[in-house]
Amino acid sequence: MDASTIIAASVGGVLIGLSAAIFLLFNGRIAGISGVVGGLLAPKAGDWGWRAAFLGGLLAGGALLMMLYPEAFPAEVPRSLPVIGAAGLLVGFGTRLGSGCTSGHGVCGLSRFSVRSAVAVGTFMTTGAITVFVMRLVTGG
């Protein structure tokens, strides 16, 4: 872990915090990605546009990164396609059942000293670490 990695991580974190703060100040909402996007799948009247706009911004940000900082996206992902497919299912179902992901519970919830979010973060960090540990045993990597 070198200084540039830590600086990049911190700068990125500050931007994420800033984005969530802007969203709260203007729109009064929590910037939780799984909630914002999940709500698009069951649209209620008048509740669709801002979600689509947020997702559009996220995709536009990805495109901007692709142009200016393509290193953000690695050429190789250390997992096979079947594992990635299963991972997506678990992430989608789990974040909706658990009412949040790394952004809603992690960034926003912990900042608000929410007990629910602290429990959620402790839980997904633990099962995430156990999964990585088991995957290393299974794949021998």
């Binding site: 678990l90 789990g94 059942l97 992901c101 839980t123 997904f124 099962t127 995430g128 156990i130 999964t131």
Partner: peptide
């Protein structure tokens, strides 16, 4: 839900 999410994340 958080436990399942963590497994998928890992």
């Amino acid at each position: 839900g958080s436990a399942l999410f963590g497994i998928g994340w890992g």
